[in-house]
Write a protein that binds this DNA or RNA. Sequence first.
DNA 1: AAATTAATCTTGACACTGTAAAGATATAAT
DNA 2: ATTATATCTTTACAGTGTCAAGATTAATTT
Lengths: 196, 196
Amino acid sequence: MNEKKYHHGNLKQCLIEAGIELLNGEGETHFSLRKVAAICAVSNAAPYSHFKNKEELLEAMKNYVTEQFTEQLNNAIKGENMEQPNTIIKMGKSYIMFFINHPQYFQFLFSQPCIRVNLNMNDEGKGNFPPFELLKELHFRVLKKYGFSDEKIKDAIISSWATVHGLAAIATMEGVIYDGIWENKIEDIISNKEEN
Amino acid sequence: MNEKKYHHGNLKQCLIEAGIELLNGEGETHFSLRKVAAICAVSNAAPYSHFKNKEELLEAMKNYVTEQFTEQLNNAIKGENMEQPNTIIKMGKSYIMFFINHPQYFQFLFSQPCIRVNLNMNDEGKGNFPPFELLKELHFRVLKKYGFSDEKIKDAIISSWATVHGLAAIATMEGVIYDGIWENKIEDIISNKEEN
DNA sequence: AAATTAATCTTGACACTGTAAAGATATAAT
DNA sequence: ATTATATCTTTACAGTGTCAAGATTAATTT
């Protein structure tokens, strides 16, 4: 049983998951298409039936990780009051925690031009980086309730995003002597940030 | 005149500068040791007399860029009152502007473990990432004047750093629809951030 | 000044990489 | 059953990082 068949059957998905496995194991530097193919027990050129090139596989992997990321952000505010500032804090904390728990993913996700962002609340936001879109919509719902102008809300979105993104960047840097207390500190900092 | 001599004479520095030139031209993806060697009109293996491997050249290049970065931060606060909050804002703005003017450098500088950071005001800070050390010391000088505790100051440093670093990250992402108004917005956001 | 040592550069080689072309095999459609 | 399509393999090539051996020059010692 389990003989090696000529056709893999589920190679595309296998390549994506094996790619992420390899990424977490060896880091992006030692990542290679041929290694991914080897993990899937398939020839060097097999991936080219599913992806135009290496870059396309990496993009698919990024989308895969982005979905996990988005799911976690959604879970973080599940059941919360969508018009309460505290919900923004919850999401912000979840944003940072995702990368503290998966430090490799930070560099990986934000190391190319695949992040699209539009602050307007119309169809232009459709192609947005999903985690950003979540942040954006939540800010609009909360801050509209508090009578903020659209322009003020947009500023707040950028400000919040910059804060959590910056904290995630710092938290995932090696050598930063702020370990352990991150979880508490982050809550303090974000809370303080959002209260004005 | 200008015959090709066997010994280059200044190869190490030439490799660093050619490396940065190549980085700005083709991006980190298409960067290669052999291309750098070619720019310096030298054989493939010549760089190995000056750098243990490719990674070491990249580190030297990062140090080179970090020096430019540090110099700009220093210039931004030259002659300013070192105990005024506005000086922090000036430096923060300069932090972001450096990467708006050199978008390639953001990914490049922060894409490896070379960033060391220690919040304590003693010798442990000696090995710190110089731009961070500048931010840190400025915060201590300003906030001490205002009677902040060391612990509060450390929080403020992380908070400020996260904000400017996050804004730099966002500003250097392609596709962000916030162009042009960055310079004004940034001043607003940073000012607002530092005033509490 | 001559001889020796050390630093710097070249040549040639190897294993590994991304990718393309041509062909093999299995699946789907007719 | 035949054809067409999708998927995979084999082979090949140019580009890469890196090493070892040797060539050339500069620095040091005598």
